[in-house]
């Protein structure tokens, strides 16, 4: 077998090994790059920043552990930003697994970094409810019809910050983190458009192209995958320089992702070069 043939048929175990090394080495040596927020991400940061302190923000967590590496960093950064701006955060989930994911962010960000925040006054965890877009349609008209208690079982009327919330129209902004259906698209279609509520959010890199048709008129901004999360973190660091020394997860793991992308690109180039050489040889032999 010639070198060209060998390069054209690299054993997949070698590819797997190189991808593993492309991820492990930058992680071990903490290789990271500077991020620059793109306009589509910066608009989300600007929206949260421009809202008056104490605005009501709905944060639906519509993802599970499989997509958490992409979506949790952006959920963390947005929650951190909301805390900094003293916004009131209403956390909920359309995905059964979303409730546990939200709990992780509540514990890691709100409870740990902002211990002064009071449950029921500054933030509330409404938990998961079934229904998907049907649920959004219902709570657009009457939130308390579906949410009679919070995630802990406390009656909704006993929670102070719920007293002036009747429906989705009472929220100044909806920032959704979604990995598919139901998710950001449904929030735009069933809440943002009919309720005239500003909607934005983050999604996995593979879902991002599907949401571009809604930007910028129906959807304020979009964080696409880990890159989107890293850009939001960069915007947060730029806006709040005290976060420069705080570990920014998306920026940190963008390093391994960038190197892994490079490895994939190199393999695609090698594959194409060998393809053309073989094609040329085949033509000559004909």
């Amino acid at each position: 077998m010639s070198v060209v043939e060998k390069l054209g048929n690299v054993d997949r175990r070698i590819i797997f090994l190189l991808i593993a090394l492309a991820v492990i080495i930058p992680l071990v040596f903490n290789i990271s790059f500077m991020e620059h927020p793109s306009p589509i991400v910066q608009t989300i940061f600007d929206k949260i920043e421009s809202l008056p302190n104490g605005s009501k923000i709905l944060l639906p967590f519509d993802y599970g552990p499989s997509t958490a590496p992409e979506l949790e960093p952006m959920a963390t950064a947005v929650t951190r930003h909301c805390c900094k701006k003293n916004h009131k955060m209403y956390i909920m989930a359309l995905w059964p697994t979303g409730q546990a994911q939200a709990l992780r962010v509540i514990e890691d960000v709100i409870e740990e970094e902002f211990p002064e925040k009071v449950y029921g006054t500054d933030y509330v965890h409404l938990g998961y409810k079934a229904g998907g877009y049907g649920l959004i349609n219902t709570i657009l008209a009457d939130l308390k019809k579906m949410y009679t208690t919070d995630a802990e079982g406390t009656h909704i009327d006993e929670i102070g910050m719920m007293s002036d919330v009747q429906n989705l129209r009472d929220f100044a902004f909806i920032c959704n983190f979604s990995a598919g259906f139901p998710g950001l698209k449904e929030w735009v279609q069933f809440a943002g458009d009919p309720g005239d509520i500003p909607v934005a959010g983050g999604t996995t890199a593979v879902s991002a192209p599907l949401l571009y048709p809604y930007y910028p008129r129906q959807m304020l901004g979009l964080m696409g995958g880990l890159k989107g999360a890293a850009e939001y973190e960069a915007a947060l660091v730029h806006g709040y320089p005290e976060y420069e020394k705080v570990y920014q997860r998306a920026i940190a793991i963008m390093g391994p992702q960038a190197i892994a992308h490079l490895v994939i690109i190199i393999f695609i180039i090698i594959g194409n070069i060998t393809f053309f050489i073989e094609k040329k040889r085949a033509k000559k032999s004909d």
């Binding site: 890199a205 890159k227 960038a258 992308h261």
Partner: peptide, 10 residues
């Protein structure tokens, strides 16, 4: 692929 990484910027 390149544009979605910080390397694309450099």
């Amino acid at each position: 692929l390149v544009g979605r990484t910080p390397i694309g910027h450099y």
